[in-house]
Simulated scan of single mutants.
Amino acid sequence: MSFIKNLNQESIVLAITVVMFALASLLLPGFFSANNLVAIVRSVSVLGILALGMAMIIIGRGIDLSMVAIMAMSVACYLQMLNSGMGEGSALVLALAGVLAIGLINGVLVAYADVPAIFVTLASSSFVFGFVRSQLINTDAVPVPSGHWVEILGGMRFMSIPVEVFLFAGLALATFLFLRYSKWGRYVYYAGDNPEAARNSGMPVRPMMVLRYVISALIAFIAGILTASSLHSINTRIVNSNLLYDIVLITVIGGIGLSGGKGGVRNVLFGAALIGIMLNAMTIIDIPLLYQNLIKAGILLGAIIVDGILNPRDEQTAQQGDI
């Protein structure tokens, strides 16, 4: 047991990623081609962006189950308003206002009403999906208007690499700088490590919690825009898909402890690389989606067990009930 506790999950994940990449390159036809490698990076870009928001929440001892609903429904509303003839500025402002409102409500309920984050964000996810789908849009998929900047964004390349890869890199750098070098970013770690001590020392723990959920909602909207740009539409059924579990999988398997106060952007990058390679390899092998989901579920369960061993929950974590 002492040997297990001394293991570094980040190093283990990196080693597994390198081995898996090498084996796939040698054994799977077409895996190491330039087009496939670009496809792998592109496929994990949106997942990685969402995982950045989730990581920020989990480091501060929370969880956000509303990210996928915010991502899909906010962009669907935005595109619906554009398709109905509303101006670009008005549609974007209204969509962003809705995103900020949901993030603010999530944060206030968790921080000031002391409702466990898992229940708050699960309820807001169901509400956002149900309200938008029943009251504001009447189709599952909402197309991007022809010639719109979102459509143009999806076709942009730099050195044959899709633009969303660079946006993922930029957001990863911004998140790293925020968490490591800003005062409020350090508050996230302090509050995640020991929320009572952080509060007693005078840190604005509750406003910081609200800020994290607002940032998470904004990141979800950006991920939704990139999804719509690559597919030229947004499908609201994605809310009922396994995307949320993939986000949590990347975050946890990368080494961000559910007990809070540990991890960073590097863990998200390693987790995204591992999951991207694994999913691509399973697709080439032609493993049915049902079994792919079963494999991912098993890996997520294993990652949670390992996290419980490496990052044991303390009494404050259990009392707070955020996870």
Rank of each mutant, 00 (worst) to 15 (best):
Y181F: 15
A72I: 08
N242H: 13
A76V: 08
V18A: 12
L50D: 00
S201W: 07
I4N: 03
T227M: 14
I247Q: 02
V68K: 00
V110W: 02
A95E: 05
A95S: 11
L92H: 04
L94Y: 09
F127G: 10
M1A: 11
I250C: 08
L249N: 03
M56H: 03
G192W: 03
A223M: 05
N194I: 05
L122S: 07
S229W: 01
G53T: 07
I309Q: 12
I4C: 05
I40E: 02
V265H: 02
L243E: 14
L294Q: 10
F31W: 05
K262N: 11
I63A: 01
I253G: 03
P207I: 03
A72V: 10
S241T: 11
S241R: 06
S146K: 13
I57S: 01
Q135M: 15
V68H: 00
M86Y: 14
L279V: 10
L109E: 01
G308V: 05
Y189F: 13
P143K: 12
A72N: 09
A141S: 15
T283N: 12
N36Y: 12
F32A: 15
I284S: 04
I57Y: 01
G98K: 02
Q9P: 04
P207C: 06
I309W: 08
N138W: 12
C77W: 10
A111L: 01
